[in-house]
């Protein structure tokens, strides 16, 4: 095998250089993508740094179109796109060589054992035969399929299929993972361990991830950055922490005891409050007023404070407001 030109090694090097320069996993500039006569992505621009990026949006927002354009399957009609410093239009195969893709659909290659399947995927990505075998075993262990690695994939359960899809995406040691709905069909434990795994891959193994999901909670758990698409345009993008600016200074309290009296007592102190879901109370605090007053009321009424925390905006609210805003913009521009 030594006789063959070592193309990918050199690519790796220049890629690494590129990453050092830009440290972004993708850059998109005024990108327009049409499918048939329909415009799917309308003039979007975005750039995401290394790390875990959530890709959010309702059905038909253009998420999979964006992923497929980044892998070079679709040719943009206008604009610039760079993934890991390369243009997928001209260097699609080279981009895919550094990407691991975990598709949403329930897919596998039929008639193979798990090890065969994953090592075959490794070889297709350019791993030498022996290396592919070693890394396939490693990837299967890492994804929690160690016990089942000699079974044929056709007999796998939904949860195991999700794991093997991750293993086949990881086997060639990519720089970037595309995960499309990785927790689909998993039960709570399966979902948690999948999210833990993704988190470890991004935080400890330095592999960047683009996570496309309908479950905002999953994105919130795993990702640092988010890109929200809506009707083919960017509705919001950036660090999740920055997007979740603190709501007004209000507290969420959960008590054990009589809620009515507690609320009455709070209102007597001139605090605005209202019961919210799950027997919680939302209390709007006045300036400079500490939490002492809440404790005093608890002390007097004999109620237990089980939870008391500043209210933070959740990604759900960030998402909802982003969609609402761009919906309004679209309506305004049409009207």
């Amino acid at each position: 095998m030594n006789g063959f030109p070592n193309t990918y090694k050199s690519i790796n090097h220049s890629l690494f250089q590129n990453l050092m320069d830009s440290t972004s996993i993708f850059q998109i500039d005024h990108l327009i993508v049409n499918l048939g006569r329909k415009t799917i992505l309308r003039d979007i621009s975005a750039e995401m740094p290394q790390g875990a990026v959530g890709l959010l949006g309702p059905n038909g927002a253009g998420k999979s179109t964006l992923l497929k354009t980044m892998m070079g399957f679709l040719k943009p009609d206008k604009g610039q796109i760079k993934v890991l410093g390369r243009d997928p239009r001209r260097e699609g195969a080279q981009v895919r060589q550094r990407i691991g893709y975990m598709p949403e659909e329930d897919t596998y290659m039929p008639g193979m054992t798990a090890v065969e399947f994953v090592s075959y995927c490794g070889m297709l990505c350019g791993l030498p035969r022996n290396e592919a075998m070693l890394r396939a075993h490693q990837a299967l262990h890492y994804c929690g399929l160690g016990e089942a690695r000699y079974r044929t994939v056709d007999t796998y359960s939904t949860g195991m299929r999700q794991r093997i899809k991750l293993a086949q995406a990881l086997v060639h040691d990519p720089d970037l993972l595309f995960l499309d709905e990785p927790t689909n069909g998993l039960d709570p434990q399966g979902r948690k361990s999948m999210l833990d795994l993704i988190q470890e891959i991004t935080r400890q193994k330095n592999i960047s991830v683009i996570l496309s999901s309908h479950l905002l909670h999953d994105v919130e758990t795993v990702c640092d950055y988010v890109l929200v698409l809506f009707q083919g345009s960017v509705a919001a993008s950036g660090r999740i922490q920055d997007l979740k600016q603190m709501a007004q200074s209000s507290y969420i309290i959960r008590i054990k005891g009589d809620m009515e009296t507690f609320i009455d007592a709070l209102r007597e102190q001139g605090l605005e409050c209202q019961p919210s879901r799950d027997s919680r109370i939302q209390v709007r605090m006045k300036e400079k007023l500490g939490t002492d007053v809440i404790f005093r009321i608890a002390h007097e009424s004999g109620a237990q404070i089980r939870h008391m925390a500043k209210e933070e905006m959740t990604l759900k609210e960030v998402f909802a407001s982003a969609i609402q805003q761009s919906n309004g913009d679209a309506a305004a521009s049409e009207g």
């Binding site: 095998m1 063959f4 030109p5 070592n6 193309t7 990918y8 090694k9 790796n12 195969a93 060589q97 075959y120 070889m123 297709l124 990505c125 350019g126 791993l127 030498p128 290396e131 890394r135 490693q138 990837a139 262990h141 890492y142 990881l170 060639h172 040691d173 891959i201 193994k205």
Partner: peptide, 24 residues
């Protein structure tokens, strides 16, 4: 610790990919 490790070696050129599919 048994875990995931990065690949240090080199990758083979793409021109061989079809032989893999055929062989398989």
């Amino acid at each position: 610790r048994q875990t995931y490790s990065h690949y240090e070696g080199s990758y083979l050129p793409r021109s061989l990919a079809w032989t893999l599919i055929a062989r398989r």
